[in-house]
């Protein structure tokens, strides 16, 4: 857990339960983020990530469990929570029929900044998020990346200590995504506590200190990215042979070197296996290949990817569950 230092967590969810009719969106979700850290909620569409964010941002009442931001219970002190959070992503949106600057000034006013301060802050943020040139243009004409940056800027008007970003890069092209990551990293350096939901394992791996993997309304695993990767076993040895007719020979060589057979993907002439010995295993495999005259195109030792972690934890790939089914997601009848 992120709370091992004994510091009270800034973001805390404790056994959150939420039903929508017969559908159970959250079936007792628990996670926490220590001050100044990044917590990644990782899961496919429909896993319950957005529901958790909506509860934490006071947009939704939980049916059970507790949630608190900076020590304030979201149900009992919603106003105190709202004064300390910024929300961006799927749920909060910018006004398309106002300019970028208008959006920021309006948000400043609604955070109760004086008009002058709201204007000054808007200009600062426009500058920082590289929107200064587009400041007087209608948001309707912004690109997807610009819109997300404005959305994020809007949630930062009062530099809230806690930021919740719901899938901040979904639908962005790779370049805009990188830009968004840079901005998020910068924020975290300033000491902001961040909760980030994402379907992208790479994103959680890149940004989060601590990851809670959510599937079907429950946390199926948590830990640091490294811990999660370790949990599926040690390193992987990837081998690609030049000649597909040598796949069987290569598999035999690898089994002789390490004691168990590799997984074979004939389409890309690739053999993959978990190994314990690291470099020693690699050397042993190479020796066996030499002896068996297997010609190797590529050979690499690597850590497991979060995709493999996800696959192992949930039994399905991240892209597999694109849309949540309307019914039947519930695991418990409504209380």
């Amino acid at each position: 857990m992120a709370t091992t230092t004994g510091v009270a967590p800034t973001i805390r969810a404790d056994g959150l339960i939420k039903h929508f009719g017969k559908v159970t969106a959250l079936a007792g979700v628990t996670f926490a983020a220590a001050p100044g850290t990044v917590l990644g909620l990782l899961g496919p569409n429909g896993a319950g990530k957005t529901t958790a964010v909506r509860i934490l941002t006071t947009l939704l009442m939980p049916d059970g469990g507790h949630a608190a931001i900076a020590g304030y219970d979201v149900v009992r002190h919603p106003q105190a929570v709202r004064e300390r959070i910024g929300l961006a992503g799927q749920q909060a949106s910018v006004d398309e029929y106002l300019t970028g600057r208008d959006n920021l000034v309006m948000a400043g006013r609604l955070y109760h900044l004086p008009m002058k301060a709201a204007r000054r802050r808007a200009d600062e943020l426009l500058e920082r998020f590289e929107l200064a040139e587009a400041a007087s243009r209608l948001v309707k004409n912004y690109s997807g990346g610009m819109r997300r940056r404005l959305d994020l800027a809007t949630s930062l008007v009062v530099s809230p200590p806690v930021l919740l970003l719901d899938e901040p890069t979904t639908g962005l092209d790779p370049r805009s995504r990188m830009g968004m990551w840079a901005v998020i990293r910068e924020l975290v350096q300033d000491g902001t506590t961040l909760l980030l939901t994402t379907q992208y394992l790479e994103e959680a791996d890149q940004l989060a200190d601590h990851i809670a993997v959510i599937d079907l309304g429950g946390v199926v695993a948590q830990g640091s990215p490294d811990e999660l990767k370790r949990s599926v076993g040690g390193e992987r040895l990837d081998v690609q042979v030049r000649d597909p007719r040598q796949l069987a020979a290569a598999a035999g060589a690898m089994e002789r070197a390490c004691g168990h057979p590799p997984a074979v993907d004939p389409d890309v002439r690739r053999l993959t296996m978990a190994v314990d010995g690291g470099a020693a295993a690699l050397t042993a495999v190479v020796r066996e290949f030499d002896a068996a005259h297997v010609v190797v195109e590529d050979i690499a030792l690597r850590r497991p990817t979060l995709d493999e972690v996800f696959m192992k934890l949930t039994g399905h790939a991240t892209q597999g569950a694109a849309e949540p089914p309307a019914e039947g997601r519930g695991r418990r009848p409504k209380a």
Partner: peptide, 13 residues
């Protein structure tokens, strides 16, 4: 639909 109301509701207004 556009989430503007949600943004408002997440603000201390």
């Amino acid at each position: 639909q556009r989430g503007v109301i949600d943004r408002f509701r997440s603000l201390p207004m």
